[in-house]
Amino acid sequence: MTDMRAAEPVKAPGAQLAGAGISGRRILAAKAEGRAALVGYLPVGYPDVDTSLDAMRALCRPGDGPGVDMVEIGLPYSDPILDGPVIQRAGTTALKRGVRTRDVLRAVEAVAEAGATPLCMTYWNLVDRYGVDAFARDFAQAGGAGLITPDLTPDEAEEWMVASEEHGLDRIFLVSPSSTEERIIATARACRGWVYATAVMGVTGARQRTSSQAPQLVARLRELAPDTLVGVGLGVSNGAQAAEVGSFADAVIVGSALIKPMLAAEDAGTPADLSGLRAVVADLAAGVRSA
């Protein structure tokens, strides 16, 4: 197991570039433009696989203006313990309609073709079942940058550390407001790409106001692991909030707020209508550029 007790701050010069990986370099490119990167989450397979790929393309290019820098492709899972009702509904529907793990590879290709960086957010059993090395191999071959693992911490990640090294993939682990200093340092050290800071103690879902815990958590990360890039997620729902989060984080992560218009389109009997999604993305993309 990875030793989570190692507690020395990460301060090696050049660590930023060495640990930036594929997705970190994308964040650095956004920073060079003087803004935070925008990361959009959508589950593959909702409302069906083909339309979900169209939706991911729409994330990358919502219209004439810019879209997201990275797509966090969600793999629907039967027991998603960190997801709120919006993502649950989309994921459960996708599973009922027959989405498979291997469909993520098509999504990766679609996102890469559209010019954004493809990441995958997945509960660990799906990767475990596919075979950790086989999944890493196929995912990398399709053009994927790395994995975000909500129920895998570095403590249990030995096999994933090896496979991600072998296939050159980024590892994005989560830190939370309740994480100890030792764990923040060790988690940042285990990551490659960036660190996912969960802004609130709670499941995914858009919230009226962003969390006051988020700036504090990012400040702790900057202090304890100064060369680490930080993305903030859980609760961001509009351009104004994206601007606010983008003012202190390196990347802004949005999920439920993107899925809501897709659920609304399905409820209105027009599941392939992505106009609501495009509008939200355009607002968010403008938001991170206004900070």
């Binding site: 129920d151 911490t153 830190v175 939370s176 407001p177 994480s179 764990r183 969960t198 103690m201």
Partner: peptide, 20 residues
């Protein structure tokens, strides 16, 4: 110490629960 019984057990949970 990590709650493993051979290859079984462990702690596959969101980081938010680790402190608790």
């Amino acid at each position: 110490k990590g709650g493993h019984y051979g290859i079984f057990g462990g702690q596959y949970v969101p980081e938010a629960l680790n402190a608790a």
